[in-house]
Design a protein around this nucleic acid. Structure first.
Length: 705
DNA sequence: GCGATCAGGT
DNA sequence: CACACCTGATCGC
């Protein structure tokens, strides 16, 4: 939960993601994304009143965020006060005090944040230095290095302060599987299930929040099955999302919700009410996306965990992991950093101890002291070199890492007047208390305590169910974690200007949609629906749409993984454009043009293939699903798990769990051992594996750390 | 009746 | 573990 008070020290005239209290006096507002915890006060009467009496006060956000916000009638009153700023387009803004006439100019640039559709970070540049507010973000390693507008010439911009999403800034969240890995795991599970019969359906038990859309898109693209959702009017101008969701319940993938959807599920009923089709009862499994993380000494694990007879958990995260945060920050190397979030049981001090060493103020001031030899342990050192890579000892003030070529027309402004400490003492009025890195002096920096023992893969699962069996381990996607150590990888170089935010949504393959033909009454134009384009923001209406049957060819992407970035790159179309599209069209990153589907094929495919392995290559999936329950169930006729097992095993052709795990671990991501941690005994693991393979229950005791 | 806050749920 | 909500109860206006 964000505890950011709304204002940054350097530019106290603007308020970001907070709209209450002192923020009521801001000269301009910024909204990074459309999650409620970043919208506090946004529809409060006080602010509403202020808007009514003002011509100048604006809310700046991305076009997608604007769209999402305004489709909720409760925020309609913002309509004439919202300014959508294009992503990656520096914009000059005058901050005018309406009473005094006082004016301050600032330039703001929206950078994709990878958190949910429309989510951005704000880069402010003005008289008080360059400030980056990240909002909430999920950026993979090396992502910052690919952001052109974080650079000036060949160097990273001289950033004074970063206001950082520190949700997972704790070593116990060291690693969170990449989007590609997670998607691929979910995809294979859904694929294996839904391909059994048309009555095998999947319920994605997603939270009520934006951010799952790219999952829907990818599943739909890969499997040719649209995803049932409660409402989709908010996506009316986002064809690349709209095309893949539906309000027609007769589909095999559901992400619909009901106030008591768990009850529904237990009664073999989907939240939308479906229990059978054509008189045939549905076989439903649920997949609950949830964050799985892996502490430092854990190498890797499966991204899908079976938690019950027909329930699964799938790894999914909206936020960057500990190592991703460190990678991001150490690349930016700001003078100061301020955490926007206190992670779990963490304190601000603890977080700052982690972040400080990645900032210049610390590197400069603390360098001589940073390595208290008396207590330094070998493993610590290793950790440092692993996570901080090449230039941890670099005292350079400016990061000199190369970046993508293309020069932005606007050269770096004269490295803005540097005045960090208290750009404005008044900021203290804000409810939060900040401590700049400059004021931190603790010596414990970089000593990561790894008391927590994230023991193999599932200790984070506190399910009551007995048989928790790992299901899928996608191949590690080596390309997704391309190393970014100063030397820019050639492939990124070749990507040209907007390094990799473009070239998504490749939808070129027309495929036999076989069994689903009658399932897709082209929801997008099911006009008469009660929920479609409705302004109600109620969630509970499990709409049953009258479905005009329209069989349609289903487009399946051959390399759907690109779509993962849809969340960062959701593109809006105007109403004119909309009418020009018939079934769907997908538009691309930088240029934001809408490209008719069929022209898409050749156009945007090239550059990013190097980074993202087409999912097709990720298909092989080590799976194991043997539980007595399954067998029981299979006999009972309802079940499925066994079938899945067969299916999956069949495709993977890997008979022995143990073998598979071994082969995986060798190729999987490397995570350093926790200092002082004991290496798991092979024989212990061995016996565990044996048990797993034999379908025995494995009781997992919570480790006492 | 509304909003804010809290507790409890997923 | 926690996310990003939702619901319901209570309080104050």
């Amino acid at each position: 939960m964000s505890r950011f008070g709304g204002r940054v020290r350097e530019y106290p005239a603007v308020s970001i993601d907070r709209f209450d209290r002192d923020n009521l006096r801001a000269r301009a507002y910024f909204l990074s994304h459309c999650h409620k915890d970043h919208m506090k006060g946004l529809r409060a009467p006080a602010l509403r009143r202020r808007l009514e009496g003002s011509l100048k006060v604006k809310l700046y956000c991305s076009p997608v965020t604007k769209e999402l916000l305004l489709t909720n009638w409760k925020y309609k009153f913002w309509e004439n006060h919202i300014v959508a700023l294009e992503v990656e387009t520096p914009t000059q803004i005058s901050l005018v005090d309406e009473t005094s006439g006082e004016k301050e100019d600032i330039e703001v640039t929206l950078l994709p944040a990878g958190h949910c559709p429309g989510s951005v970070m704000f880069l402010f540049e003005g008289g008080n230095g360059i400030v980056l507010y990240t909002g909430d973000f999920r950026l993979a390693k090396g992502e910052a290095a690919r952001m052109e507008l974080l650079h000036s010439g060949t160097r990273v911009k001289d950033i004074q302060s970063v206001y950082l999403d520190t949700t997972f800034c704790d070593p116990k969240f060291y690693h969170i599987p990449s989007r590609e890995e997670c998607l691929s795991g979910i995809l294979e599970l859904v694929r294996s299930w839904t391909s059994l019969t048309r009555y095998h359906v999947v319920w994605l038990n997603c939270k009520a929040a934006y951010g799952y859309e790219y999952l829907f898109i990818n599943l739909s693209e890969e499997l040719g099955i649209k995803v049932h959702v409660n409402k989709l009017d908010m996506f009316r101008n986002m064809p690349e999302i709209l095309y893949h969701v539906t309000t027609d319940r007769r589909t095999q993938i559901h992400a619909c919700r009901h106030p008591r959807d768990d009850e529904c599920f237990r009664g073999n009923r989907l939240p939308c009410g479906m229990t059978c089709q054509n008189g045939v009862p549905l076989h439903i499994i649920s997949i609950k996306p949830s964050t799985m993380w892996f502490g430092e000494r854990i190498k890797k694990t499966n991204v899908i965990v079976r938690t019950g007879e027909s329930t699964y958990r799938a790894c999914f995260s909206f936020h960057s992991s500990y190592s991703e945060i460190k990678d991001f920050l150490s690349y930016i190397q700001p003078v100061n950093v301020y955490p926007n979030v206190l992670p779990v049981g963490g304190t601000e001090d603890k977080v700052m101890e982690i972040l400080k060493p990645l900032c210049r103020s610390y590197r400069r001031n603390m360098e001589p002291k940073y390595k208290p030899l008396g207590t330094l342990k070998r493993v610590h050192k290793r950790d440092l070199s692993d996570t901080d890579e090449e230039d941890f000892f670099d005292t350079e003030l400016t990061a000199a890492k190369p970046k993508i070529p293309k020069q932005q027309n606007k050269e770096s402004r004269p490295s803005s007047a540097r005045q960090s400490e208290n750009a404005e003492g008044k900021i203290n009025e804000s409810t939060e208390s900040y401590k700049g890195t400059t004021t931190y002096t603790s010596l414990k920096a970089d000593f990561i305590d790894c008391e927590e023992s994230n023991d193999d893969d599932d200790d984070n699962e506190e399910e009551s169910e007995k048989n928790i069996v790992e299901v899928c381990s996608p191949e590690p996607d080596s390309t997704s974690t391309s190393n970014f150590n100063g030397v820019t990888s050639d492939q990124q170089e070749s990507n040209g200007d907007v390094p990799r935010w473009d070239a998504f949504f490749q939808c070129n393959k027309l495929e036999e949609s076989s069994e689903n033909e009658d399932n897709f009454p082209s929801s997008a134009d099911a006009g008469g629906s009660q929920s479609l384009f409705s302004d109600s923001d109620g969630v509970s209406d499990s709409t049953h749409i009258s479905s005009q049957n329209s069989s349609q060819s289903t487009h399946i992407s051959e390399q759907g993984s690109q779509g993962w970035d849809s969340q960062m790159d959701t593109v809006l179309i105007t109403s004119q454009e909309r009418s020009a599209l018939d079934m769907s069209s997908f538009s691309k990153g930088g240029s934001r043009t809408v490209v008719p589907l069929l022209q898409e094929t050749a156009k945007d495919s090239q550059p990013d293939n190097s980074r993202w392995k087409p999912l097709g290559q990720n298909r092989s999936c080590a799976c194991e699903l043997k539980s007595k329950d399954c067998e029981k169930e299979a006999e009972a006729g309802t079940a499925h798990s066994q079938d899945v097992l067969a299916e999956i095993n069949d495709s993977s052709r890997t008979p022995d769990l143990e073998l598979r795990r071994d082969s995986q671990s060798s190729s999987d991501f490397e995570i350093p051992l926790t200092p002082g941690a004991e290496v798991p005994q092979p024989d212990k693991l061995h016996s565990l594996y044996k048990k797993l393979a034999a379908g025995e229950s494995i009781l997992r005791e919570k480790k006492v750390s």
